[in-house]
Design a protein around this nucleic acid. Sequence first.
DNA 1: GTTACGTTTAAAT
DNA 2: TAAACGTAAC
Length: 732
Amino acid sequence: MGITGLIPFVGKASSQLHLKDIRGSTVAVDTYCWLHKGVFGCAEKLARGEDTDIYIQYCLKYVNMLLSYDIKPILVFDGQHLPAKALTEKRRRVSRKQSKERAAELLRLGRIEEARSHMRRCVDVTHDMALRLIRECRSRNVDCIVAPYEADAQMAWLNKVDVAQYIITEDSDLTLFGAKNIIFKLDLNGSGLLVEAEKLHLAMGCKEEKYHFDKFRRMCILSGCDYLDSLPGIGLAKACKFILKTEQEDMRIALKKIPSYLNMRNLEVNDDYIENFMKAEATFKHMFIYNPLERRMQRLCALEDYETDERYCSNAGTLLEDSEQALHLALGNLNPFSMKRLDSWTPEKAWPTPKNVKRSKHKSIWQTNFQSENTTTPKKENSCALFFKKVDFVSKTVNEEIEANQRLEQAKQTEAQLFTMYSFKAKRRRSPSRSDSVDQERTPPPSPVHKSRHNPFAKERTIEDCNQRSPVVCENASLLRLLSPKKASPLGGEADVKKVDSLKRSIFAKEQVQVRSRFFASQDEQTRHQKEHLNDTEKDNLDEQKLGSCSGHKKLRLERKDFPLDNQIRQRCNSQKSDGETDTDTTASSLLESQEQCVPSPLGSQEEQNQSQPQTPTKSNTKSTTIRLKSLDLLLENSQDPTEFDRNNNDAVILLSDDSCSSEQRASSTSTSSTLQRQNSLPTSKRRVGLSKPSTAKKGTPKSKTNGKLGAVSQNQTKLSMFGFQKKPMLK
DNA sequence: GTTACGTTTAAAT
DNA sequence: TAAACGTAAC
């Protein structure tokens, strides 16, 4: 039941959280929440008495999700019912029975849909069902514990002693047990709502120095909780008002002042209510839990801690004298209601692992040496990040560069992790020189390197290279390869792999690459200053004018009907292209981008992606040449023949900036290579690849204004939209 | 503005 | 089952 309206009430103490933020931690899970949701999917089968494991599989999905984020789950189950909740449970049983009878009746009448609705209401989660899940978890080395009474108290204790740093539940009652970090509404994408106890004073509107957790708990009890109904007319708001007003610590005295403090003269606070209030408070403080580290039952908080009179603890459970029985109850071997032995599992015995079951490597709370090695809070991992070199040729100072380098060094330790995050399930084609390249990655060659001033992602070239080889239009090997694989990679597939490796090195190891979601740009100072004095329409006109006159651009059109995707990639793609991207004149960027959207992201949640794309412009903007390394990698990996791109006639448009080019040129795929070759004669400093709309373009500009074209870019402007990683740079 | 209460909706596949 | 929502009463 929980506290009505508590989650909205604690809004100021809550924040969105993703499981990736709590890697390496341990969470206690209110497993009945998952079981109840899982049961919903197979309620009809269960109501008919058919065997199903759908609810088990549903729970295991969550377990696996947690494990995938290197989070150790401890599944906590409810134990015996407290006397205080006996009435509630009885009501529920009656309600379920009625629902079952009604469902049967509706089925007889042929009203299937209505019957289904009632069938969902008549299914209960039994301990047998919980035991099935416990058995599955045991085989996966995932810890489970059955609380002597309420799972809430057990989880709060695990949180209190720091065995679990977070708690996953849907029950707002948990906050009253003193849990520190609670995750509500966790979904299968890994997103949830974190409520932090240390911020609860914000929700109450109380100064931190005047706040004590007891005040919050008393407020909640006053507003009505599982163990005590509220006084008529008292909700969270009024309870909060009263608690903040009273200075009296002794609630037996304070509660009598409610009518006068809240100006509710007709309200009666009798002795019964006060007695029950004291009992409710004691229940939240002193309920019995099981300590798996010391293998004994104990109270959540000792009575001495609060100098609580034991007579108020009548709803806080009783101590099981038989310690063996208490242990087996906690292990899940006993039915908590009948105390009947159902299983004989012990943590000491090595149990065989079923085939195809992957065991977690986390240390079990049931291991005797767990406490000595796991009592410290896991170190929060440094955020891994890539940095991008902000191409600001005017204002960049040496100090800034040093700072950026320092940040890069700090980020390096997590590069390996980052590579893992952005790796693909598709098998990587390993080149024979792979090991060499890995070594090189660790110890970059000390040779003098010529770095492009315009393209931070450009492949590094030695000075000798610059002298010997004719300059290429596209310094980015991957992009060039995409445009013209034959010309770009005369050495064949192996050379391409090397090029990509080198490209990666240049991004991840050498260059300072700040990752932005889709594109990054250095603003052309001249254009920017010019635009500052113009209104939006004039800005757009300026953009169009620049593009139209093509004073510095060359437009290449690669006629292709289909993009080279192997079946594996195609299967991942769910036609997520938006309307704007389904034009027949689809650009290479949008094609790549639409594919990119289909590639499973290590980040997962949409919300997070939004966060990581603070400057993501409108669709028309993102349609610009945004080519992601991941896509290129994927394409390269999945294309056995480097010339495969040519065989597929994709429709791609790439803008190239070139002062010497005075008019818009279009070239078919057959002429692309020659066009690129002509570009080779251009001065390096004037090469532009992958131009996109300037970031100063008015957000949400109607497509008609820009005519669906890419934005104008002046000759000094470098706007590369080639590697739009989704990882948000998070630096501390 | 707050509370109480009835109704609707989402939960899963 | 509980949260969310709408509405009426105070």
